[in-house]
Design a protein around this nucleic acid. Sequence first.
DNA 1: GCAAAAGTGTTGAGTGTACACCCATGG
DNA 2: CCATGGGTGTACACTCAACACTTTTGC
Lengths: 222, 222
Amino acid sequence: MRAGAPGTAVAVDVVVVSLDPDPDADRPVVLLRRRAEAPFAGAWSLPGSRVAPDEDLTGAAHRVLRSHGGLRGARHLEQLATFGRPDRDPRGRVVSVSYLALLPRPTAAGDPTRWWHADEPPELAFDHAEILASALERLRGKLTYSNVAYGLLGDAFTLSDLQEVYTSVLGRPLDKRNFRRRVLSVGMVAEAEGQRRGSHRPAQLYRFATDELVLLDDVIVT
Amino acid sequence: MRAGAPGTAVAVDVVVVSLDPDPDADRPVVLLRRRAEAPFAGAWSLPGSRVAPDEDLTGAAHRVLRSHGGLRGARHLEQLATFGRPDRDPRGRVVSVSYLALLPRPTAAGDPTRWWHADEPPELAFDHAEILASALERLRGKLTYSNVAYGLLGDAFTLSDLQEVYTSVLGRPLDKRNFRRRVLSVGMVAEAEGQRRGSHRPAQLYRFATDELVLLDDVIVT
DNA sequence: GCAAAAGTGTTGAGTGTACACCCATGG
DNA sequence: CCATGGGTGTACACTCAACACTTTTGC
């Protein structure tokens, strides 16, 4: 592929983030793909693709998600930044538009992809370590002043689930009473029908007031 | 130019923002270029350029600033977003990486460029109206939680100058005492040597504590 | 009855907001 | 002495942060 094509190519790379399903892990995970060929053979990279000539950038990002099997579950996709150092790809000039995708649970990932803890990634190809870092920073920032958390939760969830999203991504504990008061008072979530049962007191289910990104006037956590 | 070149081209477009020097205007201004040729002949566009094969994206943005005469005075340059609708340029596929540049005063602009009030731009070519709008939104946001204002002020300025930057860009008045207390308490500025004199009490000069972008823990204005 | 997670209020400290007058200079 | 912008302090309302125990269920 790309045998000596001249000029500048445009690609998208997608940082696909979810949460470790182990309830005790409390860590975000990211989908990476092992590279079989040079350059960076054996290293891991973000899933990505060249942008087709008549394809929208967002469309290309969606295609990358689709091409990884079960990644239909993405509930949020946003553009991050564009990386264009001339030497970032040794094969030639490739400008990379990066995207952040969020999904509620890691889908089954077969070779050559795997989920990694986002805070301890393996050796990454190209400038993908930089892209990953900026994605995580953006996500942490947006949690505090928007409802992006919807990208990491299903349609119905408990307030403990929601709090777990926050503690996992931010990497620190939050006070339960203050957290609940806050998310309810800013109107981010509303009660849904039903409860979740377990070997303990049932928990009220909630849903997001809206499934679109909303920037909040107030901040959830400081 | 660009006679039938296939594939995807990459360009940068720069939203150059400053403040109307008329002290009563209190409005941000933006540099636009009148298009002589099709497409969009007669319309106005953001200054921009194709990215050269061995050129960094940031380098291309700097080159665009340099190529417009006196624009050496830019004190801030940051990437905004990348626009890539396949049909955004009728001549062929061009992906545009947009940048925001700030400078303290509008420099002399000769044909075919002119400064326009940013809130009442003329008819714009391509998707440049969208790019301009997102630039202004980003600037307003960053004023509140960072020291970007340094991009719109010289090395020494009075606190009234600084407040004028805020009221111009945000488009609303701010309480003088609260504003001063805030910018001083977050350590954004420090006293400089000297005063500015006029037909009134002299004003203490200040400078920014740092000339690099700093995200603040606290917010200047709500 | 035990384990496990859900759910719930109050208080004190600190911060944000509103507000009006005197000061120093140039002309 | 007048006009112009520069500079300053306080009181009140509100918000934020810290904190521990009871409830409901499954087993």
